[in-house]
């Protein structure tokens, strides 16, 4: 087993290709640490999305399956039905999960698939160069909303976690953020719990992680952290949206 200073075993040595200050890297690391702590690296199959994290299959040092855009929950369903005793997770961006893949996530959740979804919401399409996502905030300027997102034209930021939380198949759903240490600690706890629920065979668990995209937001990494805190948190409030163990 390779143990490079502080690097989780569930991550390969491949350097991340993410832009400076992008929080995808933090979220990878948290997920990998949880896999290590639960000792499930050799039992885990991850599903990579299409988005900036498309190369997640190079970074996670467990079996990985690259899905087509938005279909990770369907691919995960296929894998999990073949290997019900293994741990299956999807890692998806907001374009992937909340736009093109809305149908797949809704139905995987509603079936109560016993999988874990890490949902990275950065309110924009990162990989394709900064187009509007369903999660883009009102008035936020993007390549395809150059005058700022307008509610009249494109509706409101899609709160997909709130939507999913009303489905009977969902066991646990929490929204977290990674813009400061306090939130990062909470985020890791939530991710761990989402895997534990799967290990206990209790059904669908998802963690929405608010994330930055300094490159396409047109900000420095520090400005981006601040923008997330000041603009995203009020719309996408962190917290447990569903936890049936808590009798919710």
């Amino acid at each position: 087993m390779k143990e490079v200073a502080g690097k989780p075993a569930a991550l390969t040595d491949k350097p991340f290709h993410y832009c400076p200050g992008c929080t995808h890297g933090i979220i990878h690391r948290l997920t990998a640490e949880v896999i290590d702590e639960l000792g499930i690296r050799e039992e885990t199959i991850g599903i990579a999305p299409v988005g900036c994290s498309v190369l997640a299959y190079e970074y996670f040092d467990c079996d990985m399956h690259e899905a087509s855009h938005g279909r990770a929950p369907a691919v995960a369903t296929g894998v999990k039905r073949v290997h019900p005793d293994k741990v299956v997770f999807t890692y998806q961006g907001d374009g992937d999960l909340a736009s093109i893949g809305t149908a797949e996530i809704v139905h995987a959740a509603n079936r109560g698939e016993n999988i874990t979804t890490i949902f990275v919401n950065n309110a924009i399409y990162g990989m394709t160069g900064g187009q509007m996502a369903p999660t883009t905030l009102i008035d936020q300027k993007t390549k395809t909303s150059p005058a700022g997102r307008s509610r009249e034209l494109t509706g409101s930021p899609l709160k997909i976690s709130e939507m999913l939380s009303v489905l009977d198949g969902v066991t646990y759903l929490e929204r977290v953020s990674v813009h400061d240490t306090k939130h990062i600690i909470k985020a890791k706890k939530a991710i761990k719990k989402a895997f534990e629920i799967q290990l206990a065979g209790k059904g669908f668990a998802m963690v929405e992680v608010l994330s930055t995209c300094p490159t396409n937001w047109g900000m420095t990494p520090i400005e981006a952290m601040k923008w997330l805190e000041e603009n995203m948190i009020p719309i996408y409030k962190p917290g447990v949206l569903k936890d049936i163990e808590d009798g919710e």
Binding site: S99, Q131, K143, P146
Partner: peptide, 16 residues
């Protein structure tokens, strides 16, 4: 449309 490289300039242009 829906974003995808290498045609993203078409939707970006038409968006304004």
């Amino acid at each position: 449309g829906y974003p995808i490289t290498p045609q993203n300039e078409i939707p970006a242009y038409l968006s304004w």
